[in-house]
Nucleic acid binder design. Structure first.
Length: 331
DNA sequence: CATCGATGTTGAG
DNA sequence: TCAACCTCGATGG
């Protein structure tokens, strides 16, 4: 579900509410019992997002590494940050934040489900997963922590905040060298490496490869954090033919791609939404935002008219994923 | 209520 | 190249 921006937001929740606190770790589902035992009771010392992966460090030197994959999700409850405060570039947190619901009062069994769509724009009420909320309402709403619902792989708990992880692709306890090894395999992340070195690294890699740019953008070793939505939208925003080999692109174009990714990622972290249409008129933008399915330039818009030229958007399968683009504007 | 598909990655063949 | 992983919202009957 999440692309890079969601993972940064989740890491921010951990930095704000778990780092510096002793954490009770368990695996209600049982499948991660041994791993949880290794960090149970330790103080969390750091929370970092790199691309789509998150690393939580504990006082005994061990790290919990989580990759949500396509199904995974964290649900926060208790004392959580419910606004859209931006995380600063190094994973340090912004200073202003209003607290979310503490121990939920009757009628608001809201779990803060962190994915891109979970917050509407700044100040708007948090959307919750109805199914879970209902069950919590019927269940032990008055209690904290809430009873785990469904297959909770890991539960992390301070005295005020509860985080439940379900359905991750990866969930491991790692030693520092192993964390470094994972990070070393990932390409640059604009929020982790805000300097020009990251842009240079991305640019050099792309300019070297015969691979189509649409595949390079999805390659986490080339650039970390881009997924299928941002890929399609970045290519459209650049009016780039997705099949252009990386090495055939002008250097300035590659650098512009990087800068646009950094911009979209920052906006995504701030708002919790994949905002990719900042060029539209207000009327067109409001119309597009009204519908979840209509939020993007090309993503998931097969056959619909291009917002710029009216040509039907094309979808093709490449690298096992669906690629959307305008055959005219991105010729 | 059943089925499908998804903002992802891994590993088998 | 494709199934598996494992979850849930959207869709269709």
């Amino acid at each position: 579900m999440p692309e890079g921006h969601s993972v940064h937001r989740i890491a921010r929740q951990f930095a704000l509410h778990f780092v510096g606190h002793p954490v009770a770790a368990s695996s209600p589902q049982g499948r991660f019992a041994a791993g949880a035992a290794q960090i149970d009771g330790q103080v969390m010392t750091q929370a970092i997002a790199v691309g789509k992966q998150m690393f939580l460090e504990f006082d005994n030197g061990l790290w919990l590494r989580v990759h949500l994959g396509i199904y995974g999700a964290w649900d926060f409850s208790g004392d959580i940050t419910a606004d859209a405060t931006i995380a600063s570039s190094n994973g340090r947190m912004g200073q202003t934040n209003q607290k979310g619901t503490v121990v939920p009062p009757a009628g608001s069994g809201r779990a803060a489900h962190e994915f891109e769509d979970s917050l509407s724009s700044i100040g708007a009420p948090r959307r919750t997963r109805l199914r879970m909320a209902e069950q919590e309402v019927e269940g032990t709403l008055e209690s904290f922590p809430p009873p785990p619902i469904g297959a909770v792989r890991v539960r992390l708990l301070t005295d005020a905040t509860c985080a439940d992880l379900r359905g991750p692709t990866a969930c491991d306890i790692l030693h520092p060298e192993e964390v470094q090894a994972v990070i070393d395999k990932l390409g640059p992340d604009p929020l982790l490496d805000p300097g020009k070195a990251a842009e240079d690294r991305f640019t050099a890699t792309v300019l070297k490869k015969p691979t189509p740019i649409c595949l390079l953008l999805m390659d986490q070793s080339v650039v970390a954090g881009i997924g299928n939505v941002y890929r399609a939208e970045l290519l459209f925003r650049a009016r780039l033919n997705p099949h252009t080999p990386g090495r055939d692109l002008p250097e300035a174009t590659v650098r512009a791609l990087w800068k646009d990714w950094a911009k979209l990622l920052t906006i995504g972290v701030e708002t919790g939404q994949m905002m990719t249409m900042d060029g539209l008129s207000k009327e067109a933008y409001d119309g597009a935002m009204a519908s979840r399915a209509d939020r993007h330039w090309v993503y998931h818009r097969t056959g619909e008219p291009c917002r710029v030229c009216g040509t039907p958007i094309v979808m093709e399968e490449i690298g096992g994923r669906k690629l959307y683009y305008c055959p005219k504007d991105q010729a």
